[in-house]
Design a protein around this nucleic acid. Structure first.
Length: 268
DNA sequence: AACCACACCTGTTCGC
DNA sequence: TGCGAACAGGTGTGGT
């Protein structure tokens, strides 16, 4: 509840009596649209997950002094919020190990919460405009990978899918956006959409208990990654060992041969 | 206005 | 064996 004004007590107080009428997303944000026009926003951050109660998870006894939960259901060490419904449906749990994720209540936010309005549509959104996204990226004065991670031109792309998309179109992430051709812009965004499509078909990327669907199942797209996390392993295209470079306090992975660094811009 | 470094987090792995 | 450092990374914020 770090971002919810009023904190946990207020969040708990405003929810009862609402009916969820739709579930929507914008980039990596999700929200429940409520019948009176309000919304319940969620972002999974790095390690957040929604779980439908009854799905397998490591169990833990109630904390000392705490009564057993009403449902006698899963007590998970990273359980942060439990939603119960009076229509008899299963509980929904919000779990988060590293707490980069969170939830908040957004009055009037059913269509699009104002705190999310700056997030662009993602490539899988039915209303995504490739033309507009390419124009927005080329308009920026930065490097292509930074533009991909910045969610205001195109959303939904994180460190993994940025590296995979750049590898597919043979571009180094340090390429300046203002010198990117429209064709290159279209190509990298199309590649990003394809990577995300393929990853979704396999249930997501990480084979790890942190990254699961509402039923607790993990994906296995990590076996298909060409560049990300593949340092010193051969590029699937040319065999050159994949390189790892520090980038914004994290890492970038690329093929030194397929994705040569751009020449440093020369002053005149 | 636009861009960028940084804080926020916890659990795991690595090096000494 | 033990301990601290490094690492994983999305986003809001404050500084430039």
């Amino acid at each position: 509840m770090r971002r919810h004004p009023g904190g946990a007590a207020d969040f708990r107080a405003v929810l009862p009596g609402h009916l969820i009428t739709a579930v929507r997303r914008r980039g990596k944000y999700l929200w429940w649209a409520l019948d009176d026009g309000d919304a319940v926003i969620a972002h999974l951050g790095m390690s957040g997950q929604f779980r439908v109660n009854g799905s397998p998870a490591p169990s833990l006894p109630p904390a000392p002094g705490e009564a057993p939960s009403v449902t006698e259901a899963i007590r998970h060490p990273h359980l942060r919020i439990r939603f119960t419904f009076d229509d008899g449906g299963p509980d929904v749990d919000f779990l988060d190990q590293r707490t980069f994720g969170g939830m908040s209540f957004a009055p009037g936010g059913a269509d699009l919460p104002q705190e999310i309005a700056h997030i662009a549509r993602d490539p899988l959104d039915p209303d995504f405009s490739l033309i507009a996204a390419v124009a927005a990226i080329r308009h920026k004065h930065t490097e292509i990978k930074r533009a991909l991670l910045d969610q205001t031109a195109v959303s939904g792309i994180g460190n993994i899918y940025a590296d995979e998309a750049l590898w597919r179109v043979k571009l180094h992430g340090a390429r300046p956006t203002e010198k990117l051709t429209r064709a290159q812009g279209r190509a990298v965004l199309t590649a990003a959409a394809e990577v995300m499509d393929e990853a979704l078909a396999q249930g997501g990327t990480s084979f790890d208990a942190l990254y699961v669907n509402v039923n607790g199942a993990s994906g296995y797209f990590d076996r298909s990654l060409a560049a990300y996390g593949q340092a010193d392993r051969p590029c699937p295209r040319c065999g050159t060992p994949i390189r790892r470079e520090p980038f914004m306090n994290r890492s970038s992975f690329s093929c030194p041969r397929c994705q040569p660094r751009p020449r440093p811009a020369r002053g005149h």
